[in-house]
Computed example of a mutant assay.
Amino acid sequence: MQNTLTFTDLLDDAALLSLEHQIHLEELLAEHSWHVDLQQQRFEFTGSRTLTCTGFHLLGSAAPGPGSWLWAWANPSGFPPAVVAASARLRDFGRQHGIPELASAEVPFSALPGAPTEPHLAAGLLTEAAKAVTGHWSSYNGDAGGGTRAAFLVEHPDFHLPPPEPARVMRVIQQALAGLRLTDHRRVLHSYAGKRGLGAEFGRDQARLSGPGFEAVVDFDEHGRVAHIKASLSSPQGG
């Protein structure tokens, strides 16, 4: 069977859940600084409180000079194997599924969707795809000097999302539709619903999403893009 999974599919699969995790992370960290010691395998946020990550993964770096992304597994600096193991798994996944953006050691910005010119935007795209493959949903994109951005997946129990809440779910959907580059709106919503534990029923022109205390009816236009969303609160059964 021919494999049809693409880099763009991974971006769609990650879009909403990644956005919700990043909103949660930003609210949690507020104003902060970050510090990483790759050799000691320590990643720490400092601010109103100190938060030491229970795990982190260096994905790679996006540099303005060459205008390209370099995966951590291919970096000649020789980072500890545990730090770059996730990037190596992504390389293997990319080779298995024929996704050059994951399989190639270096990826020109121009080869990415939208051909971004800013390192943080390019790093963001590779990070989104990495989340869909690894299942690690919180990330941090930091200044590595000289305009280069280093991208990490970060882990800590406090980064886990709380149960889905109506206002937050709708905020995530609306913010994504307004600000993210989404290709297949049905795929985006279906992926989010499945990963977030929401009910989902999809028809040709409409989808119905449901969760604790809410229901949302989504209308699609003739191009399969979201045209309208109507959300309503519902009473708990037996309440």
Rank of each mutant, 00 (worst) to 15 (best):
A82D: 15
V83Y: 12
V84D: 10
V84P: 08
V84E: 08
V84W: 03
V84Y: 07
A86R: 12
R89S: 13
R89N: 12
L90H: 04
L90M: 03
L90V: 01
R91S: 07
D92P: 02
F93C: 00
G94D: 03
G94W: 06
G94F: 02
G94T: 02
R95G: 10
P100D: 10
P100V: 08
E101H: 14
E101G: 08
L102F: 05
L102M: 07
A105T: 05
A105L: 02
A105K: 01
V107M: 02
V107K: 05
V107L: 04
V107Q: 02
V107Y: 04
F109P: 03
F109L: 04
S110G: 12
A111D: 14
L112M: 03
P113S: 08
A115S: 15
A115Q: 13
A115H: 12
P116G: 02
P116M: 02
T117W: 00
T117Y: 00
T117S: 14
T117R: 13
P119Q: 04
P119W: 02
P119A: 04
H120I: 03
H120Y: 14
H120G: 00
L121N: 08
A122K: 00
A122C: 01
A123F: 03
G124N: 06
L125V: 05
L126P: 00
L126M: 06
E128Q: 13
E128K: 13
A129C: 11
K131C: 15
V133F: 09
V133I: 14
V133Q: 09
T134S: 15
T134A: 09
G135P: 01
H136D: 09
S138T: 15
S139M: 12
S139K: 12
N141C: 11
D143T: 09
G145Y: 10
G146R: 05
G146Q: 06
T148S: 14
T148A: 15
A150Q: 13
A150F: 05
A151R: 01
V154Q: 09
E155N: 06
H156Q: 08
H156W: 06
F159E: 08
F159V: 03
F159A: 04
H160K: 11
L161D: 02
L161M: 06
P162C: 01
E165V: 07
E165S: 11
E165K: 05
P166S: 11
P166L: 10
A167V: 06
A167E: 13
A167L: 05
R168W: 06
R168K: 11
R168H: 11
V169C: 11
V169R: 05
M170C: 05
R171S: 05
V172D: 04
V172H: 07
